[in-house]
């Protein structure tokens, strides 16, 4: 499925299930997402990890609701399965699409201005450098006997300084390679949304509405 459409679909589903109270529909969404992931040959290990990650928040909210509210098992099940549905539905975007694919599709299919698309991509490519820079800042602080915690303003100050410097360099590099803001661009890889994607998108949403509002599942 086209990445932009896939993102929109999973966001719409996540928003909708935030307002509905049906644990069976949430469960169906989890199972459907697993099937989607398996069809797209996502590694079993990654799918398995999706079960473990939400375990702690799901337990926390379940126990909290049981102890502190008058709600019954039904509502607790809704909240727990909702957390799992978020994670699994959300993973159909992150586990089957890479960030460059998503950004390229957003630029061509969702009319994201190219300065945003390439600006983000340029910045995201610096992620390894940024991780290293954070360690450097913290190490430098330690050497001066000034440990930096997540509540130290200096840590963020130095991070912002680095961002200002790097963005200057990156923007200049892009401009010198011929990138001009707000100018039309041609694309080497043209991404289209096939008609069948629209049908799939529409029918999946329709099925969800039928499950939620026509068949009253618990």
């Amino acid at each position: 499925m086209n990445p932009s459409l896939k993102l929109l679909l999973s966001l719409l589903i996540a928003v909708e299930i935030s307002f509905t109270r049906s644990w069976t529909v949430n469960l169906i969404l989890v199972i459907a997402s697993i099937i989607w992931l398996l069809i797209n040959r996502v590694a079993y290990r990654k799918i398995g990890l999706l079960f473990i990650v939400p375990l702690l928040p799901a337990l926390a909210i379940g126990i909290s609701m049981a102890l502190w509210t008058d709600e019954g098992l039904d509502f607790i099940l809704v909240l727990i399965t909702r957390i799992y549905a978020y994670v699994f539905v959300g993973s159909i975007v992150t586990l089957t699409t890479s960030l460059p694919q998503l950004v390229a599709s957003l630029e061509q299919n969702a009319k994201l201005p190219s300065k945003f698309a390439y600006g983000f991509l340029g910045a995201f490519n610096l992620i390894p450098k940024i991780t290293a820079e954070v360690s450097i800042i913290r190490a430098a602080g330690k050497m001066r006997n000034q440990p930096m915690h997540f509540w130290s303003p200096t840590l963020y100050f130095k991070a912002i300084l680095a961002s200002l410097n790097w963005s200057e360099n990156l923007a200049e590099a892009m401009t010198s390679h011929g990138f001009v803001e707000d100018q039309p661009r041609t694309h080497y890889q043209v991404i289209k949304i096939p008609v069948k994607d629209f049908y799939l998108f529409g029918s999946l949403l329709l099925i969800l509405q039928i499950l939620l509002f026509m068949i009253h599942l618990p």
Binding site: K115, G119, A123, L126, I130, F150, A159, S163, A171, D182
Partner: peptide, 24 residues
């Protein structure tokens, strides 16, 4: 909305967000 943003600011904002993401 889009006109107010220039390439350099977009990159700065993205970099700051990533830095914060890493610190999180």
């Amino acid at each position: 909305f889009f006109k107010a943003w220039h390439l350099r600011d977009i990159i700065t904002l993205a970099l700051i967000s990533i830095f914060f993401g890493v610190i999180y």
